[in-house]
């Protein structure tokens, strides 16, 4: 093919160069988690001691447990409210306030985290003043994460809802299903894969966030990113590299496994469709 970047040497070089740029920091994190020296970034020898250190580091372990809990709860709430938002926006046609709902759902996608953090914190402080609750802690971080998560989950679920054939829902309705039955028995199974993707995405968003958590955390709710961030500000800490390596390995296995699964599921679906088509033709 004759075009500017085509399958040329230039194209390949560019591709490889950008991939190196994307992966160099990750490789560095992993390599230095096995480096013996604490102070210098020079390679002085192979060691596992930072993993041992990290495993005995109460602050890191507590942070990890808090972050995992938080991410799980946030992803659950996000998927629930994201499903509601997406369903209302896609299936309910026009109604009063639709534009407002759409922009409220879109805003957190593009709003800088500092703004989300500050505005929620000011509201919580005002609430505390007038109502006496809530105390800042995991619950308040959860509100912030679930807000961001709802927006992202809405986008993922909306695109799937648009794809599925609404005739299936209409058919169920014609056959006497109540609206709730249609949703539970027809719509939900059809969007199940999107719900899983939305859950994984919002879990990751919560597990990664440092800015919103910094604003909304209280005593006893120091998440893993908050611990890492406060240490990273001071300098380099090899036990962070050890934690990073563990996270990278877990995430990579997850991402590779899920894309393999999706690839297989896609092929199986294609084959099934082809077989069904062949049967109809015969």
């Amino acid at each position: 093919m004759k075009n500017l970047f085509g399958r040329s040497l230039f194209g390949r070089t560019w591709l490889i160069a950008v991939f190196i740029f994307l992966y160099i920091p990750i490789v560095t994190l992993v390599v230095y988690s096995f480096n013996d020296s604490r102070l210098s970034t020079a390679w002085t020898g192979f060691t596992f001691k930072w993993y041992v250190d990290a495993a005995h580091d109460r602050e890191l372990i507590d942070g990890l447990i808090i972050s995992l809990k938080l991410a799980f709860m946030s992803a659950t709430l996000s998927v629930i409210f994201g499903t509601f938002t997406a369903f209302v926006l896609v299936r309910y046609g026009r109604f009063k306030g639709r534009g407002m709902l759409a922009s409220m759902a879109n805003a957190p996608l593009v709003m800088p985290d500092v703004i989300v953090g500050i505005s929620l914190l000011l509201m919580l402080v005002a609430m505390q003043k007038w109502l006496g609750f809530p105390e800042r802690g995991i619950g308040t971080i959860l509100l912030g994460h679930a807000l961001i998560g709802t927006s992202f989950a809405t986008v993922v679920i909306m695109s799937r809802l648009r794809e599925i054939d609404h005739h299936l829902e209409e058919a169920a309705m014609d056959l006497g299903c109540k609206p709730f039955q249609v949703f539970a028995l027809v719509t939900l199974p059809l969007i199940a894969a999107a719900l899983v993707s939305a859950f994984l995405l919002t879990f990751t968003l919560s597990f990664d966030d440092v800015v919103i958590a910094a604003f909304l955390s209280g005593p006893g709710s120091t998440t893993l990113p908050l611990v890492i961030f406060s240490r990273a500000r001071l300098g380099l800490d090899p036990s962070i590299n050890a934690v990073a390596t563990v996270i990278i390995v877990v995430v990579s296995i997850g991402v590779i496994a899920s894309s393999l699964y999706q690839l297989r599921a896609g092929r199986r679906r294609q084959r099934e469709v082809a077989e069904a088509y062949a049967q109809v033709k015969n």
Binding site: L22, I26, T204, I240, A244, I247, V251, V255
Partner: peptide, 26 residues
């Protein structure tokens, strides 16, 4: 998938890694 993979691993840690790359003795 290779483009998305770094996106799923912690943003904070990937930024932190640049400190080790770019510092004076990095």
């Amino acid at each position: 998938m290779l483009v998305m993979l770094p996106f799923w691993t912690s943003f904070l840690l990937r930024i932190y890694a640049w400190k080790a790359l770019l510092s004076d003795n990095g």
